[in-house]
Design a binder for these strands. Structure first.
Lengths: 211, 211
DNA sequence: CCGATCTCTAAGCATATGCTTAGCACGTTG
DNA sequence: CAACGTGCTAAGCATATGCTTAGAGATCGG
């Protein structure tokens, strides 16, 4: 059985599910194959032939749905960052006080980085190879998450709920350990993505709450 | 002025210094050029011509000192992991009680990952492309750090200094935020690598100490 | 049933890539 | 000074790569 036809692992199925919600038919299969190829081999290591093979198509078929390899990557990076950002920001909208907002945001964000670790890691590792105007949307999304967390911390300080002498440093620290989940997590891990989310939210709150 | 001849940034000079202690003459220049090229462009994105240009040599000259591109990478990964491991484990030898050992280890390790962020990140991001027998030394070094920290936590629990219900989870968490320093740190950051080291050691101790 | 359209493949083009070969300059040694 | 070894370069080889072209098969409206 050729590599690209073996049964999907749990982690890979999460990538498949991600794209089945966001693209139909051949485009979805290509986006799935490309995400997995980029994740396994790196951007330059994943040839268009490899991506095509993992999508079950010929190399030329890819170019009917996407203008170029970079275009494919841009699409994956954009949708990936959109989902990651939404995982952080959207749940916080359900609460009004800073503590609950932070708890909801971190629970969801850390869980997303565990559950979607292939996509998250691929985005994080390969984005540095792609700067410039074309990727300004992605850069905006990244700044959005940072600003949202920064504001949340400052809000907590001003209401007296949080004790954070250095909000900028705390923002970096919290985002850092959440994002890094994608580097080490895998779906055979003894704890579920949700359990990671809860653990990390407890950690974040213990760092910022007055004691 | 061509790209490979512009003055080195502070971060790049740290790479240069690293290799000047570990290789002489042309080999050192090649290892420096290759480390920077791999870091900027990824393993497959860094062509042997690019590496040669950054070393100020012709492509063929590289092959006098190294058998292949993968050989070059293996050398960088091995020496990088050796230094990273030493930064973690060696300082702990100066103390006997678990708390001080942990403080020394984390201070040094987090500072190393900040100071050497180009090398550390390059190792972390590109190693996943290289498994197999040839890289077993690197894998052994990585396991060594994990086992050392795990033992340190268990020692602290058994002497009564630490309160850690889940040493495996704590090990992962502490290594995670230390390693991730390399992803976001840069030498224009408002705090020095040493300051990061101290901050992170405080954080690690606050997580494990009885309170 | 015919033509149009949409999706895909086989083959190919130009260039980039990892690595090799042949040879040159230069310092050292007999 | 000649012979040699060392560290390098220019040029080249075989293959891999991103992408294009020409055309095949299937589907659908008229």
């Amino acid at each position: 059985m050729p590599e690209h036809e073996r049964p999907r692992l749990a982690s890979e199925r999460r990538v498949e599910d991600f794209w089945s919600d966001r693209a139909h038919g051949a485009a979805g299969r290509i986006l799935t194959g490309a995400t997995l190829a980029f994740a396994d081999l790196g951007y330059h290591g994943a040839s268009t032939r490899e991506i095509a093979a993992r999508s079950g198509m010929s190399p030329a078929a890819v170019y009917i749905h996407f203008e170029s390899k970079e275009d494919l990557f841009l699409r994956i990076a954009t949708e990936g960052h959109r989902a990651s950002t939404a995982a952080f920001i959207d749940p916080a909208g359900l609460a009004t006080d800073p503590s609950t907002k932070l708890r909801l945001a971190i629970t969801s964000f850390a869980a997303w980085n565990a559950d979607m670790h292939i996509l998250s890691r691929m985005i994080e590792y390969e984005m540095r190879l792609h700067g410039g105007e074309r990727f300004s949307d992605v850069a905006r999304l990244r700044r959005g998450v940072e600003q949202f967390l920064r504001s949340l911390l400052e809000e907590g300080v001003s209401t007296g709920a949080f004790d954070v002498p250095d909000p900028e440093g705390m923002k970096i620290l919290i985002l850092s350990f959440c994002i890094d989940v994608a580097r080490w997590y895998h779906h055979d891990f003894r704890r579920s993505p949700t359990a990671i989310g809860v653990q990390y939210a407890d950690l974040a709150l213990s760092l910022v709450l007055k004691h």
